[in-house]
């Protein structure tokens, strides 16, 4: 037993660190997630960058370097420019509508009653069916011949609409499907935000004589700022994920009305086998998405906390 104790550096320890310090023990636990993160997220981006600078034969073999030509080609292509505009338009159209509907639903179903719980479950139910199945449902509802929507339209004396072969209706259909599916998420975000508002604040405002409208605009809405930010970012992200109905139903048409950038990326890669250009387009779109989200996070930044 060593009883002479001097001040000595303690760093050299032949044992597991008491409090889990350092990368060593952490790596054991992080390994599965870290490997997947590196392979399918970091390498993915690296692969995209590398592929975007090459030219490929139709078999997918790299046959030369293209430098930044792929980017130049993609960005100067008027079809891709149109696709980018469409993607931006999808975000601009989807986000406000979805937020308004989600907030309205959350305010309406705010109280914790049994009936509200049932209605809430119904609002979020489309999420459980998965995007493919909800797309089937919309395809059926808006079918030109046997769709219920056209049946109702003609039943009340309005003209039938060829939903998938007319430009504006096709766009509305794709956006509508996306909004219908995602309103539930937005509602949940706002419901969580509403339940986090301390009731004392609203009570204090009521004692000060605030009416329901004043209460909403001066108390509820400002205090929902954090949920707002979160809901906007989620909705924006979702607005970049409306490729499924386009791929399944409209195939970019009619006459380019749903020719989204993401659809063009898919076509370029898997129909035209132009891997370099497809990767360049992917990166350009991803860059655009990240810029939009960064701007939103900045504009909607919240600078207060409860307590």
């Amino acid at each position: 037993m060593d009883t002479t104790i001097a001040i000595r550096p303690v760093r050299l320890k032949p044992r597991l660190p008491a409090l889990l310090e350092g990368w060593g023990p952490a790596l054991v636990f992080l390994a599965p997630a870290l490997v997947m993160l590196c392979l399918f997220k970091l390498w993915l981006i690296a692969e995209a960058v590398y592929t975007s600078t090459g030219t490929f034969d139709p078999g997918g073999q790299r046959i030369g370097n293209a430098g930044l030509d792929n980017f130049g080609f993609a960005l100067s292509d008027s079809r891709f420019q149109w696709g980018l505009w469409l993607s931006l338009f999808a975000a601009v159209a989807k986000v406000p509508v979805q937020l308004a509907l989600g907030l309205a639903a959350a305010l309406m179903l705010r109280a914790n009653t049994g009936g509200n719980a049932v209605v809430r479950a119904m609002v979020i139910s489309p999420m459980f069916f998965g995007l493919p199945v909800t797309t089937f449902i919309f395809a059926y509802m808006f079918d030109a011949n046997v769709g219920a929507v056209n049946a109702i339209l003609s039943g009340i004396g309005l003209p039938r609409v060829a939903w998938l072969s007319t430009e504006a209706p096709a766009q509305m259909l794709v956006l509508g499907l996306s909004i219908w599916r995602d309103v539930g998420v937005t509602m949940l975000v706002f419901l969580a935000g509403l339940s986090a508002i301390p009731p004392q604040i609203a009570n204090a405002a009521k004692l000060d004589g605030a009416g329901p409208f004043a209460l909403f605009f001066t108390i509820t809405l400002p205090l929902l700022a954090r949920s707002f930010q979160f809901a906007v970012v989620l909705a924006t992200l979702a607005s970049f994920q409306i490729l499924v109905p386009v791929l399944m139903l409209t195939k970019g048409g009619p006459t380019g009305a749903t020719d989204l950038a993401s659809f063009q990326i898919y076509e370029t890669a898997f129909s035209y086998f132009d891997l370099g250009t497809a990767s360049a387009m992917s990166l350009a779109l991803l860059f655009g998405l990240i810029v939009i989200i960064a701007l939103e996070l900045r504009w909607l930044a919240v600078k207060w906390t409860y307590e």
Binding site: L37, F40, T51, Q241, I265, L289
Partner: peptide, 18 residues
């Protein structure tokens, strides 16, 4: 990485898995 939707990054992901 939440901000990398599959829709956008499909081709490179395909190359990685290939």
């Amino acid at each position: 990485t939440l901000f990398i939707p599959v829709d956008v990054i499909l081709p490179p992901l395909f190359f990685v898995v290939r």
